[in-house]
Design a protein around this nucleic acid. Structure first.
Lengths: 192, 192
DNA sequence: TTAATTTTGTACAGATCAGTAAAGAATGGA
DNA sequence: TCCATTCTTTACTGATCTGTACAAAATTAA
């Protein structure tokens, strides 16, 4: 009962996610959020509580959409090396095509001191470990089929690869040198 | 001629650097900068022009001090593997000991959309390529002495290692899991 | 001593900040 | 119809934001 909402919560969170992704937490004003979502201040605060709570919600949405899409990409058919290479090549294309150089919202949230409460850090950590586990499973498959050398602990291999992946995304924020990024990819794939 | 400054430019820039490092560009107010440097608004604007110009100056100072210290660490005696491992182990200790989880100012400046003008991106890029070149030289030494395998392009190896290094610093911002970070180190060093 | 120059401190501008209060509008149920 | 409930809109709070204006203070050169 009561007056029904005139907006879709999902669409509003999507809009907020895009905005936090573009500008970061601190630089995004509640006025920006109202304009972008189309909500009035009252509606926004009534629905989401505060700027920071909406930030958390946006990060959760990011994990459920963009993060999951990344994990799904790793589940596609193909050799382990190809799948891990495609993961990196995909972000090179995506990141370099984006004029705003938004990068990855989870990485941005990890970097920015400003909105990084323990709640936010926890959400980011979860995305990090989800990717780590997905990569780990691939490395284990590769080692068991003989595609990859089995002389190193799979978790170590996975974690080093994941770290290179995150470094790649940060590098892509300031460099226009595609070859440098491709070198990271080939270097990281060769190291598997 | 004219009235002499009552403060040291260097000390003021150092203080501003610390503040931008802790809080990021957007979240640092000019009032914060005045308090931390001890300057009045007039003096601060007279000496540094604007918040953003001071930010650039602070990033330059970071490169000249912290960045150079990192490069110097790579020039110490020891095997190539040991020196590259020590670089990573050093930041694990430093980053985890820092309660504010400031990480690396250059990486933060790369990540934060807010203050990232082309001037800032250029300063960050320079620090990135300086480190890349230092790592490259080490890889070349390692390959020529036979310490490292010579079957891969040194630049590719160096860039992949550098990327893992940056990823490590981002991971250190949100994780308290030292073993995960040590796995990155051993994985990246084993990949050389 | 006077003039030119620079720094300092303070007050201020105008805008924007996150969040709230309250009145009116739209619904479902009694 | 009338009430309880929820949402929308608007106005507002008090604080804070970056940057500037300007007069007083401190210096050097003439």
């Amino acid at each position: 009962m009561g007056r029904p909402r005139e907006f879709s919560d999902e669409a509003a969170v999507d809009a907020a996610m895009e905005l936090f992704w573009e500008k970061g937490y601190e630089a995004t004003s509640t006025q920006d959020l109202c304009s972008r979502t189309g909500l009035g201040r009252g509606s926004l605060y009534n629905a989401f509580g505060s700027k920071h709570r909406l930030y958390e919600t946006a990060i959760r949405r990011y994990a459920d959409t963009k993060g999951e899409a990344q994990l799904a990409m790793l589940a596609e058919p193909g050799s382990v090396r190809d799948r891990l290479r495609d993961l990196m090549l995909g972000v090179i294309d995506a990141d370099m095509a984006d004029p705003g150089r938004r990068g990855c919202l989870a990485l941005n949230a990890a970097s920015e001191t400003s909105g990084r409460t323990e709640a936010v850090a926890g959400l980011v950590r979860r995305q990090f470990t989800d990717l780590e586990q997905a990569i780990l499973r691939l490395v284990e498959v590769g080692q068991s089929t003989g595609e990859l050398a089995s002389d190193r602990p799979p978790l170590q291999v996975a974690r080093a690869f994941q770290s290179a992946y995150y470094g790649l995304r940060v590098l892509a924020k300031v460099t226009g040198d595609r070859q440098a990024l491709l070198d990271v990819v080939e270097g990281a794939v060769a190291a598997l």
